[in-house]
């Protein structure tokens, strides 16, 4: 088929495309839905850590730490959704996302010698790690669904971004709902981000390659 014939074929019987949802509206909807879902589930299965309200309100390293976690979440969400629209914000979201994630994680590493809060077992949840994995899944799937309705040029990369963004939500939420101790945080709240991203990446890789055969 030559190019002229292809153009004739593509432009014949052309259907109008569905109404365009602005990027920032879709992003806000995903963030709101995911944060409310994860927050709701966490409150359903256990209380917040006693005294956390005061820890958040006072200007402190802990509140700054929470802000960086929230910033990482927002930037990864932007990166994930933008990656499904060709040419939209190709650079700055992912750079900011890595930067905020790095700074947030650095707080816990520094916390081995100088923690933001006094480490203790207060507020420990028995299954915080499992909760982190389970609560991450629906937001991951929701974002992947939103991505698939657009046109990700690199679906594998886009799905990994989605998994990271989604897994950060329970990780940040556990900062107020579970005990505060750097090793516990890294192993039980943060490590699921890596596991979920890897698992989603492998699943996406297999699905993409099987569908091409």
């Amino acid at each position: 088929m030559n190019t002229r014939d292809l153009i004739d074929s593509l432009s014949s019987d052309l259907q109008p495309v569905p109404g365009f949802w602005p990027f920032w509206s879709v992003l806000a909807l995903w963030l709101a839905a995911s944060v409310f879902y994860v927050g709701g589930m966490i409150l359903l299965f256990g209380p917040l850590r006693p005294g956390v309200e005061a820890q958040l309100v006072m200007p402190s390293r802990f509140s700054v730490e929470m802000l960086f976690g929230a910033a990482a979440l927002v930037c990864w969400a932007i990166a994930g959704l933008a990656d499904s629209i060709p040419g939209l914000y190709p650079r700055w979201p992912i750079r900011l996302a890595w930067m905020f994630l790095g700074i947030w994680l650095l707080h816990f590493i520094v916390g081995f010698v100088s923690p933001s809060l006094e480490p203790s077992m207060v507020g420990k949840r028995d299954h915080c790690s499992s909760e982190a994995y389970i609560y991450s899944l629906p937001p991951t799937l929701l974002m992947i669904w939103l991505q698939r309705r657009r046109f990700p040029l690199n679906p594998l990369r886009a799905s990994i971004y989605a998994a990271i963004a989604a897994a950060i939500i329970p990780a940040v939420a556990m900062q107020v709902a579970c005990m505060y101790e750097p090793t516990h945080i890294l192993v039980n709240h943060v490590f699921p981000i890596l596991v979920l991203a890897t698992g989603v990446g492998i699943a996406a890789f297999l699905i993409i390659h099987l569908s091409r055969k």
């Binding site: 495309v17 365009f20 629209i85 040419g87 040029l153």
Partner: peptide
């Protein structure tokens, strides 16, 4: 590229320049 543009045309935002969208594809 034309086929991909056809498949992705619903993602184009009329408020933005077409060039970044087009050449990314």
């Amino acid at each position: 590229s034309l086929i991909a543009i056809h498949q992705a045309r619903h993602t184009y935002d009329p408020g933005r320049s077409i060039r970044p969208w087009l050449f990314a594809i």
